[in-house]
Design a protein around this nucleic acid. Structure first.
Lengths: 207, 207
DNA sequence: TTAAAAATAGGGGGAAACCCCGATACTTCT
DNA sequence: AGAAGTATCGGGGTTTCCCCCTATTTTTAA
């Protein structure tokens, strides 16, 4: 069994490798710290299970997952995150994640995750996830879902503290157009002002 | 030598313990996952060096550091964080931190940190910090500094997406007063709109 | 006890945000 | 060919923000 972990926190990687080797001394574990490193790795090695820190990709987790799914359909992807944001979790599952666990989960959950996805039958969610998942009723969760390229562009400028006028000047479009995109961002994020938008965007990894 | 680590991410804790035991097999390492656990621990054990994930304390790292410093003046405190926010680092040093390292630093930095603060002479900053530190010229850094209790209250309501009017109604004060506090927050955070305020506040751990 | 800081509140005004609406053009997918 | 989605722009409006001031009371610290 070949396992890979991608995380930019060295400590996380070390803790992970230790935990897996303890249970599976014969497993081969590859590590990478970012997106680029991951693809280099995937080209060289046949990876069975990938543990992925989703916060690596600021802008577009969706395209990233798609790329992984299409390029490596057999790959099992387990998201490992410090985010407890539920809509994100739901979205990632829709995008083809096979499992999800928190960095705060005990390391036994890693082993469980490996076993669950190896058996090919079901998706894995850690206990930490499940408790949060059912605490807030995720059923009526608002999907921050998909942002268009232009929306992402405008969101990033909002996050930089730019005003509508400044954004318009930057992108050479009218303030009205910026307002429209802004409104659409509000709708997609289900918020009613910039403060909430910025908060939600940051917590969902758009920074 | 007795070492403690406080972090709510189990993987980080495991990675840390492994790294330290590798170099100091005889060291005693205690762990806690939150603030409460830490104080329970400090009452029972004589800790020499504390590695602390500062993101644990949403509201008030300042009071927290003060409490530690006054209650345990001999304790060496090394902040371990995933935040790369420079003003925060500076502030924490001012508040009596003895060292600072990133979660993305290699584990050799942990050992270096232990050695540096043990020698009692100097503060420790990891290589990761130093490179960032000098990349942006921190000299003219704006200290988000001290927030009054009322300002913290208002900040937290802004972070919840409340409008000036709503905040006034919540705290039973006039909108004008809220506006004043809001202005003062802008000045202290050195920003010019809510978007930047929220972003900076979250990055500096006020969430 | 005096000075400084914090919290309160107001007047007044301009700028930006926010919310309706409708409209056109271009791509993409079915 | 038609529907859906994206991106563009406008009119016209209300609300909120943001900034300039002054000023009083209370709390805190020197």
């Amino acid at each position: 069994m070949t396992i890979a972990i991608v995380d930019d926190h060295q400590l996380i990687v070390d803790g992970f490798v230790g935990a897996v080797l303890q249970t599976y001394p014969d497993s081969r574990i590859h590590t990478a710290s970012d997106e680029r490193g991951l693809f280099t790795l995937l080209k060289k090695e046949a990876i069975d299970i990938l543990f992925l820190d989703i916060r690596l990709h600021r802008s577009d987790a969706r395209d990233f997952m798609k790329k992984l799914r299409t390029g490596y359909p057999e790959l099992k992807i387990i998201i490992i995150s410090s985010l407890s944001d539920l809509p994100t979790i739901e979205t990632l599952f829709k995008q083809g994640a096979d499992g999800y666990l928190f960095k705060s989960d005990p390391k036994t959950e890693i082993i469980k995750a490996i076993q669950t996805v190896s058996e090919e039958k079901e998706k894995f969610t850690s206990k930490g996830i499940e408790s949060k998942y059912f605490a807030h009723n995720i059923v009526k969760s608002h999907h921050p879902t998909y942002l268009t390229p232009r929306e992402k562009e405008i969101l990033s400028l909002i996050l930089k503290g730019k005003t509508t006028k400044e954004i318009g000047d930057t992108l050479f479009i009218s303030e009205k157009t910026v307002e429209n995109h802004r409104t659409n961002l509000f709708i997609k994020f289900d918020v009613k002002n910039v403060a909430s938008l910025v908060k939600k965007a940051i917590l969902e990894g758009h920074l």
